[in-house]
Write a protein that binds this DNA or RNA. Sequence first.
DNA 1: CGAGGGATTGATACGTCTCAAAGCATGTGG
DNA 2: CCACATGCTTTGAGACGTATCAATCCCTCG
Lengths: 217, 217
Amino acid sequence: MTLAYPMSDPRTARPATALSDAFERLGSRMSYGRDEEIYAQDDEAEMLYRVVRGVVRTSRLTVDGRRQVGDFYYAGDLFGLEPGPDHRFAAEALTDCEIHLVRRSAVRAFAGDAELDRAILEATRQEMERLQEHVVMLGRKSARERVASFLMSLAQRREETHVDLPMGRQDMADYLGLTIETVSRMLTQLQGDDIVEFPSSRRFQVRKWNALEALAA
Amino acid sequence: MTLAYPMSDPRTARPATALSDAFERLGSRMSYGRDEEIYAQDDEAEMLYRVVRGVVRTSRLTVDGRRQVGDFYYAGDLFGLEPGPDHRFAAEALTDCEIHLVRRSAVRAFAGDAELDRAILEATRQEMERLQEHVVMLGRKSARERVASFLMSLAQRREETHVDLPMGRQDMADYLGLTIETVSRMLTQLQGDDIVEFPSSRRFQVRKWNALEALAA
DNA sequence: CGAGGGATTGATACGTCTCAAAGCATGTGG
DNA sequence: CCACATGCTTTGAGACGTATCAATCCCTCG
């Protein structure tokens, strides 16, 4: 399978159990505690990772200590699949995590496993798409819009009315290219406009989808 | 070949002629005039593209008219290879261009052509890496640093002391997430600090590599 | 009940944007 | 060859948004 192959439609993807099986067969399982490092920035990229339980954050630190969060990964997501020789971003356990790992060499040996190939390609597709969205957001959106987009994307993942924020304000800020104070102020604003409601700082509910969507644009 | 395959080292890549041959064999050649559209935002992605001559820009327009430039592509670069079903960014000829096109279906039929597979994978690798850099830049760098990074990356491409800017200030601004005025001011600043010199608005020379590198960090 | 860490709020500083004008090339027609 | 129109770039003044620094609040946990 090459990159030029037409994509499988994500909506028709097979149940995660098959993919889980592939990882089980070829790889191993690890546990990480909150804030534990899974791989470091500039480490050689020789594994693929899949979140079984918990949330993972990728991040990059500049020489002078500024931090940019790359993305957050949830149960079922593949990560660490940059095709380059080493990781540009570190990966850390945002919460306690269980992770499936598989050596790339093992994947290569099984190249042709349609299930696994498809999953990797689909994850790569998503990764690029999310990177592109991230670029647009950071390049052209205001603080208010960024925070709205962020809440929106979290809310879209779940069916429930109430959404849990697995990350703190600092992680949000570093993902959104803002400071913790600005994030906090925007949340307060959005709540003031009754677009969203925070019963606690780690839990929210969308009240006006239209308004939120319009902002997230 | 799968994405999990270890990367070829870019420094050992074969001469471009072989790749050029592959495109010649499988695809066709097109010319585009300045500012002509090569593909539109949200078009189906069914081709791969390779710049033969000229410079290509990818860009995305939000509903309310804000523009984000994704990247610039020069002679030899592959583009339009997002693995998704359609293009998130449009591609336009920044200058008059000659482009090699090849249908993805043709590539697929020839899957296993090591040369082409390798080139696609390598281009994908670069694409992701550049996207990640872009995210860090937009998320965490000041205007001065962004402009410095941009000049740096252009200067690194060439051997010569003088570098031509194929794009205008607006394109730079939209790539860097700034306004045209801010870009202009930062250029004036960098010139004032004797880090860089502009004999004309479309041509520059680096005077203090260290200083530029430090800023680009 | 008090301590500690994250979150919020406030006041102010700073950086970038906005709007407007002027400068500078390039090309065209007189 | 000049005069002017055009489009891009630079410069300026002021407004606005986000960062910074500091204080307070609020939860959770001991």
